[in-house]
Design a protein around this nucleic acid. Structure first.
Length: 584
RNA sequence: CGGGGCGUAGCGUAGUGGCUAGCGCGCUUGCUUUGGGAGCAAGAGAUCGUGGGUUCGAGUCCCGCCGCCCCGACCA
């Protein structure tokens, strides 16, 4: 039993000045965590109880799935990370240190290398596969800007598992097993979450999904529809309209449009001087051609032009995900000088494409389909072409998902309009493929005695982050409201008043409930009722029992923290009623 | 790394060059009080982030440094 008279706990009446998001404010106010340095926190007794419950649930579900737990050091040597290139690739985010001999070490941000090497040292046959091993480990990332308290720290606890399979089918099975285990885990944690497909970019195009806990404080933006579609913004697929038959479409015609270097000025001039027969022109009638430079890791670079409806901006994150490993950057004056055929502000697709004289690759938004007619640059200053029809008057080299996704855009699966939302990444499952196995030479012999590179998956759950995510999703203006399984206790007994009978009854009740198998937090302090009630609401134990003034009538009160509902029950029935309230 | 804000007691804060740095919470002691962060009284607790400068005099003005928070960039 936890007695508040001796519990190491100090709640704060006021919000800490440096806390912004609800989980940070409440975890500090309720005395569950304390900051020791930016992005580094200590867990105090009640907080550590919650943390351990989360960790326990994660571990139970991993074990239930048949995965095996190991434990690596957090302090790691440089060499394995040198081999995979991450010693340098990870950059400043990698927390490095030296031992007394000047040797390079790091505090592990993630452990792909160590797992791969461990398996390499032990296994050498396909008969040993599949294998999944995991650990629950403190990880370190020297974040440029830790923020939001526990949500994004420099030290945090992650469950990371790794699967090892001989072939792609095996990898898919290991991936699916993790997906199932994660669903069970997050359900038990009481987290609302969505599973979004994530871009794995240039990492080989393999499957990757993120588990996001929707909440205001989330750092990841995703979109979802009423009908259940959810995806990372980077992964959203644009719904393309049906192509239009080319017959009978008006012929293209070039018009003078002086001083119209922007879409706004163009639309204004078009409406004033070349009005549409039936309706006003809008930005969506124009085809904007955005010029970019792609820089490749090998040092080469080349231009790329993206054609998209004039009412859309290029979303840099989506673009980067599409062109990786190349890095896009704006086209500079110098670049324009090298390409005199590009007339700044008046670029049109007639001169673009790999097959054209310019040879510049031209990719369009999926909304630009054959038969659509556009107002676009005529490749000379002050002139635009109207009714330029895709597939008749110009061609393109391919499509690209680089345009911004807007609220109201249709979901690709037809499940309704998309709305953007924010979420906390609480889990990520990822088919790594053979990248690490190849780099570290993890091979096994197959049935034919041939050496084959193992294929891997990596799967993470932010354990400490999940505590904060739960707090984000389960609180009100009075404090925390823990889901039962992660709560620091099942029942919080509040004794009010100074009547010795109150305290003796409360004590007996606490002992009886503990005997019945409940985890009991008992407020036996000599504090005023207001203090105790407020603390009980701040701490967020799901069931609260008040033993106080109604005891003279032989009654105690049972409150449900989440709903606020309360009922009075006779003392004699209290144990049974509390057990019922706790779902026992 | 860019932009903005802030460093005064454990926490939250006031203090626009002039007396002994003020208040609330929390803490200690005593008495009273006990169904919504109690009352009275008496206390303890601060090198005002740090180094330098200006001044008769600096928490207050100037410069450097350090640290923290927020937005952005970054983020397996």
């Amino acid at each position: 039993m936890l007695r508040m008279s001796t519990l190491f706990l100090r709640t704060l009446r006021e919000d800490p000045a440096d806390a912004e998001v609800p989980s940070h404010r409440l975890l500090v106010r309720a005395g569950l965590v304390r900051r020791v340095a930016p992005g580094i926190f200590s867990w105090l007794p009640l907080g550590y109880l919650v943390y351990r419950n989360v960790e326990r649930i994660v571990r139970e579900e991993m074990d239930a799935a048949g995965f095996q737990e190991v434990h690596f050091p957090a302090l790691l040597p440089r060499e394995p990370y040198e081999v995979t290139g991450r010693w340098t690739e990870y950059g400043d985010t990698l927390l490095r240190l030296h031992d007394r001999k000047g040797g390079d070490y790091l505090l592990g941000p993630t452990h792909e290398e160590m797992f791969t090497l461990l398996v390499k040292g032990e296994y050498s046959s396909y008969k040993d596969l599949p294998l999944v091993i995991y650990q629950i480990q403190t990880k370190y990332r020297d974040e440029a800007r830790p923020r939001a308290g526990i949500l994004r720290g420099r030290e945090f606890v992650m469950k990371d598992s790794y699967s090892f399979d001989i072939d792609d089918e095996g990898l898919q099975r290991s991936y699916d097993r993790h997906r199932e285990a994660y669903i069970k885990t997050f359900d038990r944690l009481g987290l609302e979450y969505v599973i979004v497909s994530a871009m794995s970019g240039a990492m080989g195009g393999s499957a990757s999904e993120e588990f996001l806990a929707p909440c205001e404080s989330g750092e990841d933006t995703f979109v979802r529809s009423e009908g259940g579609y959810a995806a990372n913004v980077e992964a959203v697929v644009t719904v393309a309209p049906e192509p239009i038959a080319l017959e009978g479409l008006p012929a293209a015609h070039v018009e003078d449009t002086p001083d119209t270097p922007t879409i706004e000025t163009l639309v204004a001039v078009a409406n004033a001087e070349h009005p549409h027969p039936d309706r006003p022109w809008t930005a969506a009638d124009t085809l904007k051609n955005v010029v970019l430079r792609l820089d490749y890791p090998d040092g080469t670079s080349r231009p790329l032009i993206i054609g998209l409806p004039g009412d859309r901006e290029v979303d840099m994150k989506r673009l980067e995900a599409q062109v990786a490993p190349a890095v896009p950057s704006p086209f500079e004056e110098d670049d324009f000088t090298k390409h005199p055929e590009l007339v700044k502000g008046y670029i049109g697709p007639q001169v673009l494409g790999k097959e054209s004289p310019s040879g510049i690759e031209y990719l369009v938004d999926p909304r630009v389909v054959p038969g659509t007619a556009w107002i676009t640059g005529a490749n000379e200053p002050g002139r635009h072409v109207f009714d330029l029809v895709c597939g008749r008057d110009f061609t393109f080299d391919g499509t690209i998902e680089a345009a911004e996704v807007r609220d109201g855009d249709p979901a690709p699966d037809g499940s309704g309009p998309l709305h953007s939302a924010r979420g906390i990444e609480i889990g990520h499952i990822f088919q790594l493929g053979r990248k690490y196995a190849e780099a570290l030479d993890l091979k096994v012999l197959d049935v034919n005695g041939k050496s084959r590179v193992v294929t891997m998956g990596s799967y993470g759950i932010g354990v400490s982050r999940a505590v904060a995510a739960i707090a984000e999703q389960h609180h009100d203006d009075k404090g925390l409201i823990w889901p039962r399984e992660v709560a620091p206790a099942d029942v919080h007994i509040v004794a009010t008043g100074k009547d010795p009978a109150v305290f003796s009854t409360a004590e007996e009740l606490a002992l009886a409930l503990e005997d019945a198998g409940l985890r009991v937090l008992y407020d036996d302090r000599k504090a005023s009722p207001g203090v105790k009630f407020n603390d009980s609401e701040l701490l967020g134990v799901p069931t609260i029992v008040v033993v106080g003034k109604r005891l003279v009538d032989g009654m105690v009160e049972i409150k449900d923290r989440a709903s606020g509902q309360r009922e009075e029950v006779p003392v004699a029935a209290a144990v049974a009623e509390v057990l019922k309230a706790c779902g026992r």
